[in-house]
């Protein structure tokens, strides 16, 4: 009885979560021009999308920004997490963590507006570089937060053992610490990617006139009304996310199994 209630509840929640997405994608195959009545199947909107060079360039920009910013943010964030764990004073660590979380909790508009003031004061022209820097900036804290727990789980004896065996600082880092925290680094990179792809508000503030990312483009097109090319775009993007999430899930499962197997071998 209780089980059944739980299941019905979950079905409703998941239906609501996915209905708009399915709706959006379904209409990308409709022959009409509006999202009202389905007019029969067509690939037409996908053809429009793939011949829309402006849109394709924007997709490429968005992916480039996402990958590049996530990579750099993962690097800086991991170094940051490493230095935070190395701090000996509790006060220093707490204040570093507080500062780290400022951008996590700040509303997008504040981040966007303050970065806009910042870039304008430094006279950096708005465009690709400002968007990239902003994305790196707001992705770093999430990487730190993903890496820190793994670093905390690492036992000190592991490091002592490596040092006793004559490992240099560099070897310690590359052979002991990095492999151990790699799931955290990976998760951080992934979250950073998500943040970048999903961001609209910050980009909207710092993008200027010439450069555009998908969110900004969709915003300006959506303000003009329904255009089924956007539906086709969401179809493609959904497939893309599905592949990414599927890949992530698969890698996690695989690494878990590997760890289990290792444990079995050890015991």
């Amino acid at each position: 009885m209780k089980r059944r209630f739980a299941n019905i509840y979950l079905i409703i929640v998941f239906a609501i979560l996915y209905a708009p997405i399915i709706f959006l994608i379904a209409y990308s195959f409709s022959q009409g021009d509006t999202m009202t009545n389905f007019h029969g199947f067509t690939w037409r909107h996908y053809q429009t999308l793939f011949s829309d060079t402006r849109m394709l360039a924007i997709v490429a920009n968005t992916l480039l920004i996402a990958l590049l910013s996530a990579l750099i943010a993962t690097l800086i964030g991991t170094l940051g997490a490493l230095s935070i764990t190395r701090t000996t004073k509790r006060v220093t660590r707490e204040s570093l963590l507080t500062l780290n979380n400022v951008l996590m909790v700040s509303p997008d508009v504040i981040i966007g507006a303050s970065f806009l003031i910042f870039f304008t004061m430094l006279k950096i022209p708005l465009g690709f570089s400002t968007v990239l820097m902003s994305h790196i900036a707001f992705e770093i804290p999430i990487v730190v937060l993903m890496v820190l727990p793994r670093l905390r789980e690492m036992s000190a004896s592991l490091l002592d053992a490596a040092q006793d065996l004559g490992a240099t600082t560099r070897q310690l880092l590359t052979h002991v610490i990095i492999p151990f925290i790699s799931p955290g680094i990976f998760a951080g990179f992934f979250m950073a990617l998500t943040y970048s792809l999903d961001d609209f508000a910050v980009t909207f503030f710092v993008t200027g006139n010439g450069f555009s990312t998908l969110s900004v483009e969709i915003y300006s097109r959506a303000r003009q009304g329904i255009n089924l090319e956007i539906n086709a775009l969401s179809g493609v993007m959904f497939l893309f996310s599905l592949l990414l999430v599927g890949g992530y899930y698969w890698i996690q499962q695989a690494s878990q199994k590997r760890r289990q197997r290792k444990r079995e071998v050890v015991s």
Binding site: P20, I21, F23, M35, I226, S234, S241, V245
Partner: peptide, 27 residues
């Protein structure tokens, strides 16, 4: 993961979907 998946869809696309769903002759 199924809960997380929709957060991967751009927020603007979700808003756009609702423009269609809530429109005069919409779903």
């Amino acid at each position: 993961l199924l809960v997380i998946l929709p957060t991967w869809i751009n927020i603007l696309l979700k808003a756009y979907a609702f423009i269609g769903i809530f429109s005069q002759a919409g779903l």
